[in-house]
C-alpha cells in the first residue's frame, strides 16, 4: 500500500497480512470501555460518497472517530456533470478543507484512481462500481481468519451476482492471495464476460458445490437484474441459488456463512439461515470498523505508541 488503498489488486500476501495483524490491535481497542485512541488526533478524514451507502459510510466514520480524527461528510450526487461541475472541481473543493484522507464511493469503476491523481490526500476506495471494495475484502478475510486461523487451503464459494460485484472482485484477489481456492457460483449471465486470468473455478450448480465448501459467501442480488433480462425471475434465482435451510444442511457443520450486507432475507438467503450459528454476518460488521481503523492508521498514522493508550475521557 503506497499512499492510497485503491484495491486489493497490486497488494501481495505480506501486505494483506500486515493489515490483518494490525486489525487485531484495533479489534482489541474496540472492546475497551472507551474505544478511542489519540492516534489520528488533528487529522481530517472525509467521506465522499457519490452513491448511497449508510453502512459503509458509518463504518468509516466510526473508525475515524475511534482514532480521534475529525470527520467530514460530503454526500455528492452521482452526476456532477448535471450540475456543470467536473469531478475534479468537486475534489478540489473538498481538498481545500485540508483533508488528510478521502474515503470515496462511486458508482463507476476507477473513479477513486482518478481522484488519487488529483489530490495529495490519501484516497481509500470504499467501492467503485463493479470494480473493487478493498476494505470489504479485508474485513471478510479477517473474519474468516478469526474463525479458522488461516485461509490456506480453504474452499470458498462466492455465490450470486459476480458480474456487478466489486465485493466479488476484491474477495477473489484477497482470498486467493491468502491461499484459499475460490469457486464462483452463478448463472452465466451473472458472471463477468471474461474470466481469463482469474484464479477461480466456476460452477452453475450450488447444490453440487456446497458439501465441499469451508465458507459460503453470498452476494446481494439487486432486483433490477430481472428487468435487465439477466435472470428470468426472483423465484427461479431463489430456487437455484438461494441458501435456504435445506441447502444449508448440505454445508459442512463447521463451514462459515458470509454476506456483505444488507441481506435480502428470503432472496439470497432465508431468514433461518441468517440466524444459523455458522453465520458470521454480524462479525463482519463489527470487524469492518477494526479493519478500517487499521487502514486509516497505516495510511495516516505517525506513531504506534498512540494506539497503545486510550484517549482520556473528556472531563475526567
Amino acid at each position: 500500500m503506497t499512499g492510497h488503498l485503491l484495491g486489493i489488486d497490486g497488494m501481495d500476501r505480506a501486505e494483506i497480512e500486515e493489515l490483518l495483524d494490525l486489525t487485531d490491535t484495533f479489534a482489541e481497542i474496540g472492546r475497551r470501555s472507551i474505544p478511542r485512541v489519540p492516534a489520528l488526533r488533528g487529522r481530517t478524514v472525509a467521506t465522499l460518497f457519490f452513491e448511497d451507502s449508510t453502512r459503509t459510510r458509518i463504518s468509516f466514520d466510526t473508525a475515524a472517530k475511534r482514532l480521534s480524527a475529525d470527520t467530514l461528510d460530503f454526500a455528492a450526487g452521482s452526476s456532477s456533470l448535471s450540475k456543470g461541475e467536473s469531478l475534479r472541481d468537486t475534489v478540489d473543493v473538498i481538498a481545500s478543507y485540508g483533508v488528510d484522507a478521502l474515503v470515496v464511493r462511486h458508482p463507476m469503476a476507477g473513479t477513486p484512481h482518478r481522484i488519487a491523481d488529483w489530490t495529495d490526500a490519501a484516497v481509500i476506495n470504499a467501492g467503485d462500481g463493479a470494480h473493487e471494495h478493498p476494505t470489504q475484502a479485508l474485513l471478510d478475510a479477517y473474519t474468516i481468519r478469526q474463525h479458522r486461523g488461516a485461509l490456506d487451503g480453504m474452499q470458498i464459494g462466492i455465490v450470486g451476482d459476480i458480474r456487478h460485484s466489486r465485493v466479488a472482485r476484491s474477495n477473489v484477489l484477497a482470498f486467493s492471495a491468502l491461499g484459499a481456492d475460490v469457486t464462483l457460483v452463478a448463472p452465466p449471465t451473472l458472471l463477468p464476460p471474461s474470466l481469463a486470468g482469474w484464479p477461480v473455478r466456476v460452477s452453475h450448480d450450488l447444490d453440487e458445490v456446497l458439501p465441499s465448501l469451508d465458507a459460503c459467501y453470498l452476494l446481494r442480488l439487486q432486483r433490477e437484474r430481472i428487468t435487465e433480462g439477466l435472470i428470468p425471475s426472483i423465484r427461479e434465482y431463489v430456487a437455484d441459488y438461494g441458501l435456504d435451510a435445506a441447502r444449508a444442511a448440505r454445508l459442512p457443520v463447521d463451514a462459515l456463512i458470509c454476506h456483505p450486507g444488507p441481506t435480502n432475507r428470503g432472496l439470497e438467503l432465508s431468514a433461518e439461515v441468517a440466524s444459523d450459528p455458522r453465520s458470521v454476518i454480524l462479525d463482519q460488521v463489527v470487524n469492518g470498523v477494526s479493519v478500517r481503523m487499521a487502514v486509516l492508521f497505516l495510511l495516516l498514522g505517525s506513531g504506534r505508541e498512540l494506539i497503545d493508550r486510550s484517549e482520556p475521557e473528556v472531563g475526567s
Binding site: M108, G110, G129, E132, P192, L195, A196, G197, W198
Partner: peptide, 13 residues
C-alpha cells in the same frame, strides 16, 4: 470493449 480487460476493471463493456 467487452472482454478480459473490462471484466477485470469492472467497467461495463
Amino acid at each position: 470493449h467487452e472482454g478480459e480487460w473490462s471484466s477485470r476493471l469492472g467497467i461495463p463493456g
